[in-house]
Every structure is written in structure tokens, then in C-alpha cells.
């Protein structure tokens, strides 16, 4: 489960967004959409903890695994500085991913870096023959990454940007409400908490089931430390579940939004 994976490539896709490819055949073999890796960004004890990053794509033939990340702090900055040919220590694949129906259309909703796990999901759905409709929103055209790769998957994409530089101006949730959803298609989403909260409310109004990939600060990533709690409904009460081991994918309806 612990891999010393060689860095095959590292590309800057937008000012703060990078895609990194690792040689990790076991991960490529096993990973399911929605699962993540715990990445050691530094070679010293500082930063101390690993950083969780979703599996963005796998290439089983080449044994390659892609990660897509935004530089937001020290860990991700160090990651962006890691050089080709050097090794990255990762643990995984971890967590419980998306559950996808064997056939029929599926709807994916990505906000910002939420495209990281959903790109992988879109790929797998296409390989299995599901029809895929993707709603993808970001701040600007520049931050709508992997556009060419998405288009070459042969899926239907609706773009949204906050500044209107590409696709619809506004949020991806507004766009989805406007366009509507094909009947009975399950919904899969990942993105920042405010977007997921708004989406959960919209889907509830439409009476739709959905699966969301959630994020929380993590310690171990393997279910041991109980650091990554998310509030989940249980009857009239609530319980805390572990994002790392019970998720990161949860049913939208069970999450209690604060």
C-alpha cells in the first residue's frame, strides 16, 4: 500500500494548477474513481502530515497514475517543485469511491478542482458505455482544465465560469438548474463545500439521489485517527463518519451541511 513512485511528468495547466503523473502500476491496477492517495509532499518531517489527493486518471498499460492539484499552501507548493525522475512516497489507493450503474446516462457536476476525481469517473463510465453529461464550473476559462481531454472522451460538457470567459456566466449549480437533468440519471459531484451545499439543496428540490466526494483535513487517511469527521444523519440524530474510510464519497442526502 506504500509506494515509492517515480514522477513521470509534471505539467502546469493553469497558474496554480498542476498535473503530475506517477509510475505506480499497483495503484493504476487497483484504483477506483473517487479514491485518493496520501502523498508525502516533503522529504523531511515538515510539513509533517501527508496530503490527500484524488486519483485523477490511470493508465494501466503504462502503470501511470495522474494527480491534479491546486497550489494552496506549503504542501502543494512543495509538490509543484518536485522534479521529474525523483520518487514520491504515496499511500493508497484509499477510501470508498463512487458507485456507478452498469448502464444508462450519468450526470457529473464538478466545481474547480472537483474535476480531479470526476475526470477519472468520466473515463471509466465511457469505457463501460454509460452516457456521460458533465457540468463543469470554475472561476475563469483558464481554470477550466483538461478541456481537450474531456472533449476527446466523447461526453457532453456544459461549461460555467464566474466571469463568463467560457460557457455560461455563473455557478455550475445555476447552470444545471437551467439545463435540467435527463430523467433517472444518477448524479456525482465534487467541489468546494459551498457548491456542494447549494447542489444538495437543488437536487433535493428535484428529488434526485446523488453521490458527493467530500473533503476534510486528514491525519492518517486510513480510518485510524478519527480526525476527518463529517456529520451524517442517522434517523433523527446524527453521527460522525470518517471521510477517509467511510468516504470520501457519501450520499448527498445523508450529509448534514453546517
Amino acid at each position: 500500500m506504500i509506494h515509492e513512485a517515480e514522477i513521470l511528468s509534471q505539467r502546469r495547466l493553469a497558474p496554480d494548477i498542476y498535473r503530475l503523473e506517477l509510475f505506480a502500476p499497483r495503484v493504476a491496477e487497483q484504483a477506483q474513481p473517487g479514491q485518493f492517495l496520501m502523498v508525502r509532499t516533503s522529504i523531511s518531517l515538515d510539513p509533517f502530515l501527508r496530503r490527500p489527493l484524488s486519483v485523477n486518471a490511470v493508465d494501466r498499460r503504462r502503470g501511470a497514475v495522474a494527480l491534479l492539484y491546486r497550489v494552496v499552501g506549503r504542501g502543494t507548493r512543495l509538490l509543484a517543485e518536485r522534479k521529474l525522475g525523483k520518487r514520491l512516497n504515496v499511500v493508497g489507493p484509499l477510501g470508498r469511491g463512487f458507485t456507478v450503474p452498469l448502464s444508462g446516462p450519468v450526470v457529473l457536476v464538478a466545481g474547480g478542482l472537483g474535476i480531479a476525481p470526476l475526470f477519472f469517473l468520466a473515463e471509466v463510465c465511457r469505457q463501460r458505455g454509460n452516457e456521460v453529461i458533465l457540468f463543469y464550473g470554475a472561476r475563469s476559462q483558464e481554470e477550466l482544465v483538461l478541456r481537450r481531454e474531456l472533449e476527446s472522451l466523447g461526453i457532453k460538457v456544459f461549461w460555467a465560469t464566474d466571469d463568463g470567459s467560457l460557457g455560461e456566466r455563473g455557478t455550475v449549480v445555476e447552470l444545471l438548474k437551467k439545463k435540467g437533468l435527463p430523467p433517472a440519471a444518477p448524479v456525482y459531484a465534487a467541489g468546494p463545500p459551498p457548491m456542494l451545499k447549494a447542489l444538495a439543496a437543488a437536487l433535493k428540490d428535484m428529488g434526485r439521489e446523488a453521490e458527493f466526494s467530500l473533503e476534510e483535513r486528514m491525519g492518517c487517511g486510513v480510518g485510524a485517527c478519527r480526525g476527518c469527521a463529517v456529520k451524517v444523519r442517522e434517523g433523527k440524530d446524527f453521527v460522525y463518519r470518517r471521510v477517509c474510510a467511510d468516504g470520501p464519497v457519501f450520499k448527498a442526502g445523508e450529509v448534514v451541511w453546517e
Binding site: D46, P47, R217, G227
Partner: peptide, 17 residues
């Protein structure tokens, strides 16, 4: 059931939980 999140943050060479 434990405390409300966030429950864990990183600190210089350490963890606060």
C-alpha cells in the same frame, strides 16, 4: 461520537487534535 470538525490541524512539526 466525538467532537465537531475540524478535529485535526497540522502545526510546525506536529499535529493539533
Amino acid at each position: 461520537r466525538g467532537n465537531p470538525p475540524p478535529r485535526l490541524v497540522e502545526t510546525p512539526a506536529g499535529v493539533l487534535n
